[in-house]
Design a protein around this nucleic acid. Structure first.
Lengths: 230, 230
DNA sequence: CCAAAAGTGTTCGAACTACACCCATGT
DNA sequence: ACATGGGTGTAGTTCGAACACTTTTGG
């Protein structure tokens, strides 16, 4: 086969779509934005953008995330490639989906409005363009699995969080109620949380202690064969 | 933004690579083939091929599998997209990897030779081109997870298999020795295997009973909220 | 003093682990 | 008769599930 072999092959538009997940009011939320070009202008969709020539996929996903939201460093992971021939009504586009976990509190309402975006509870997601609803579902089930075995959930919370908050988060991820005592027992046993002296009094008179995820401790435990599991 | 917007975007070669896994002699094997075009002609690589215009990704993967091996219907699942800018020394190519589970006994030595392919123990995989070694690793860890919660392992065995065989398979997948009695107990409890009257006497005087995976029973149990777990 | 959320231990059963001997049969 | 892999059950332990009351404090 000749060296020009590559040239004979078809080429495709390749896009990345970001499923940006946040947590607020005891619910998982996803950041949607109103599409501002044809086809399907005005419809709701995920954050997305085309991959550029000199750019890797992960790189493109990071860029899209930053450009569309102002967010820099967050947890992000590839979900997979979506390549049905007719998935995009405009033209053939192959899209690689990434999900990102962000702390909603780090960013202001105005910021989102500036970017023409809005947070929606995942349980109340409207119809999205193309296969974006499927991408969201795939992200949520990926998150479910991941959160059970890796401490990624903390990315969805502010740096300082309370145990009731954390439990709500996991209930939202797993879509099942958890037992308060068992949940706390487990976390305590892992020893990867740092208890602060400060309390969050927004939700109760008594107030709930703030905790922080101790990454150093976690990494150290990992070395010793420890496995996160919740 | 104008409707011609799509036209302004970069386009990419998109390939699929198939990690074809089999099981033989108590070891997981992967089907490699000697690359017959530049660059890196003569090096070992995974089965791969470019995606064509009118073709979905899954479709392309199925085609490549069939064209390169003569195999039709097997278990196949996408691993993800690999898009580092410099991953292919020839030109920029984005590749979507799929892993496939096949029963090695279904196909003859001659067939593989005809396709310029060979089976290699995954533990003795040579250096492959590009990021193919990484793809293989990703497939193996995906298989590890998948096999624990879904009855996909059976795809790696002939239709009729013995319990010692099945155990060896899982030991190869998990890379840990399993307890014979506990393993059998678990399988028995699930009730998804059908015991045949026939014995396999190739490995012992006494012979080991053949079993078959009962898919109907499995599907039926699924409806009742049953979860496969091994 | 009352409402509302935070915090705390124990018991029970299920599931997993470890483990050793007899069986069948071709040579 | 013996060597080789196939097949079987039990006891101990660990882990997860269920469960109810006390504490704090702003109003």
């Amino acid at each position: 086969m000749p060296a020009v072999f590559y040239q004979e092959q078809a080429k495709f538009h390749v896009a990345v779509d970001c499923i940006i997940l946040g947590f607020n009011n005891n619910e998982l939320n996803v950041l949607l934005y109103k599409r501002n070009f044809e086809p399907l202008k005005g419809e709701w969709s995920l954050m997305g953008g085309f991959v550029r020539s000199g750019e890797g996929l992960d790189e493109a996903a990071t860029r899209v995330l930053t450009d569309c939201t102002g967010i820099n460093t967050v947890f992000m992971e590839q979900i997979g490639a979506y390549g049905e021939v007719t998935r995009d009504q405009g033209e053939r586009v192959i899209s690689v989906a990434y999900y990102a976990l962000v702390s909603m509190n780090d960013f202001s309402q105005e910021l989102w409005e500036h970017y023409n975006a809005k947070w929606t509870k995942v349980t109340e997601t409207p119809a999205l363009i193309f296969d974006h609803n499927q991408m969201l579902l795939d992200s949520l089930s990926r998150l479910k699995r991941k959160a059970a075995t890796r401490p990624v959930g903390f990315n969805l919370l502010p740096e300082k969080f309370t145990l009731p908050q954390l439990q709500c988060l996991y209930e939202a991820i797993y879509q099942v109620p958890l037992d308060k005592r068992n949940f706390r027992k487990k976390l305590n046993a892992m020893g990867i949380l740092e208890k602060l002296d400060e309390k969050d009094r927004r939700n109760s008179r008594r107030g709930a202690f703030y905790y922080m995820f101790n990454k150093e401790k976690y990494d150290q435990l990992l070395e010793q064969g420890f496995y996160f599991s919740l």
